[in-house]
Amino acid sequence: MLQSQSINFSYDGIHQFCFPDIQLSEGEELLILGESGVGKTTFIQILAGLLKPSSGLLEFNGVQFHNLPSKELDQFRGKHIGMVFQSPYFVKNISILDNLLLSLYLSKNKEDKKRAIELLEQVGLGHKINSKPNDLSQGEQQRAAIALAVVKNPSVILADEPTSSLDDVNCKKITSLLKEQAASTNAHLIIITHDQRLKSQFDKSITL
């Protein structure tokens, strides 16, 4: 169970972001829509434990993780949260497969090369496992970023504008991929976007 209550955040102490409460059960999906500047990225970074809210409560399976000490929060994030960003990020000096293995290492998971390769095959990158991130097209990079986010079997998958730079075909593919991966591990899936094309693909959505 992932839930947030009365989350507020301010960068400068003057302008406050107030975010709606959410409550998700295991395997549940949520689409959060909002225009630019309403604090979409801020909200997802709070949900990922990267930003600390000014006030409010964040809880995952009974753990109020926003109050954890820095080191424990790192471990919590590594273990439970997988993130997909608007621009796909990788460690560019190593191959896509090594990026997945590095994620497993940093999150203190077993180095499961077989699973990493299977995952890359599932997202259609079986032939590019040894390619460097810069050698992939934008669509391939976004698919690789999803594999990177889910390789450690996270309990929560957070995606920040994953489709905004993609055409309709790729947009649909990426969304389906995210939903499939979340379903396969019974993870919570939260997508934050301004991309209205996604609205039809989700049963549950809120607007900021």
């Binding site: 790192d74 994030r77 949260i81 460690v91």
Partner: peptide, 18 residues
Amino acid sequence: KRRYELALMRVHGASKWQ
């Protein structure tokens, strides 16, 4: 050039000391 890589590693669970 790689600072976002370091941030990404932190997201993956890397500690500051790593």
